[in-house]
Design a protein around this nucleic acid. Structure first.
Lengths: 244, 244
DNA sequence: CCCGCTTTGACAGAACGGTGACAAAACATG
DNA sequence: CATGTTTTGTCACCGTTCTGTCAAAGCGGG
């Protein structure tokens, strides 16, 4: 989603230049980063990175493509960024249509900025809740990958049923990897979160512990598949390596 | 959320008996299971199991407690079930207030059943998307163009599904291109922002890396469509080349 | 004091990035 | 159209940086 410290990015798709720039200005005052596209075609260039936006504000009336269709296309292409439709019309039929093509909310022009803001915030908040809830679900006390089974509660680990002795820190590192699978983790991030910067150990420490995890869990420690080095960046834990 | 085969359960909190039973009936015809509470107090008995409901329809005017307050309480207690507010009043101020206490949507009486249904479905659908996305991976920073898929968080890239190995700098350059699509970027700008002027490399370095991106991602590296040279100026990244 | 765990330093091997040379293409000029 | 000039494409080489690995030095608890 959005990295800590980074500001939430919004995309406004609106052809009336006045309204668009006014919106951009006001939203930026509220702490968002805002990109503006005047046409559906133009919006495509912003959507090559599908998940950078926290929400999209979409005018229904565009010169080249209907807002409903654009929204439907977006959803069809697997982009589930929250969408707020902006329209002059206010018939129940329109509202229903907007929701049916996958919009999340519907604001009628003329609107108050405060209301639009509240709706944006509401959508962002809900998304936050959902992902928090999902994170809670997935972080369980046990971990399995390859031939390894780890139980963090009882501090027991095994490979192919054979018990393996792990130290405190090995468990801690493993758990951090398990909580952030398939993501490159820098040595600094690991030192902060696993070592909590106790007397600032240097980065070779991390290397050594990864080495030890490899020795414990990799079928072939010289050709790791689960604990991968990403040169220049850090390490990545891959519970389900490619081609398996 | 809801087990497969099981029907989605809704909670309607509404004191006007007519409206409540009418709603229950209609929603059941649409395939939902519906519980009805006539007062805030009574709703508590249904909410002892916080996560059984797919959504809650909440009248703002209740005999014992304000709907806004009830919603705020719900959220404070850690219940993030989607809430649709139902009200006779329709001022922007009310709508904003509803959203601020954590409601997800707002329907004004009198309303069409179709619209309420669309809104309920919209909320359920979004929740489904979110949990899908979370299951896949906490929707990560990703880029798509042509046959290429790039995930910056896991440092993975592929063309037509075939994995492609990229180095640190290749990712960094690609990311800068992706953040500034369809804009001419001078070599100097790229050196500043991607290389951060580490020991001031010369401009041939940039050429080399663009060459490498072309080899990785262009269908025909000798006739680039995504990574274009702009003679005398620099390079331009075009995620959606014309005639496509 | 002993023992196990953690941290550090050293070294080697591998991967990566930067450079310059030359070729090819684009452009300018007459 | 021919020619010279500038810009970009392309390649292979080499120094630098990064990681794997080991052994020895710290550190702390019993």
């Amino acid at each position: 989603m959005t990295a800590p410290g980074e500001r939430t990015r919004l995309l406004v798709i609106e052809d009336e230049t006045h309204l668009a720039t006014g919106l951009k200005l006001n939203l930026e005052l509220e702490g968002f980063e805002v990109d503006v596209a005047a046409t559906a075609r133009q919006s495509a260039q912003f959507l090559v990175r599908p998940h950078v936006y926290g929400a999209i504000v979409l005018d229904v009336m565009l010169p080249d493509l209907d807002g409903f269709e654009l929204c439907a296309k977006l959803r069809a292409s697997g982009n589930y960024t929250p969408v707020i439709m902006l329209t002059a019309r206010n018939s129940p039929h329109d509202r229903v249509r907007g929701l049916e093509v996958g919009a999340d909310d519907y604001v009628v022009k003329p609107f108050e900025l405060g209301e639009l803001l509240a709706r944006i915030r509401s959508l962002l908040r809900r998304r936050q809740w959902e992902s928090d809830a999902a994170a809670r679900d997935t972080s369980s006390a046990t971990l399995q990958f390859g031939a390894a089974r780890i139980d963090f509660d009882s501090h027991e680990a095994s490979v192919d049923g054979e018990p393996v002795q792990l130290t405190q820190l090995e468990f801690a590192l493993l758990r951090y990897f398990a909580d952030h699978p398939d993501r490159v983790l820098s040595r600094e991030e690991l030192l902060e979160n696993v070592w909590q910067l106790r007397n600032y150990p240097n980065t070779r420490t991390v290397d050594n512990f990864v080495l030890r995890l490899r020795k414990h869990f990799e079928p072939d420690a010289s050709r790791p598949v689960h604990f991968l080095s990403i040169r220049g960046s850090g390490y990545k834990f891959s519970p389900l390596p490619r081609s398996s």
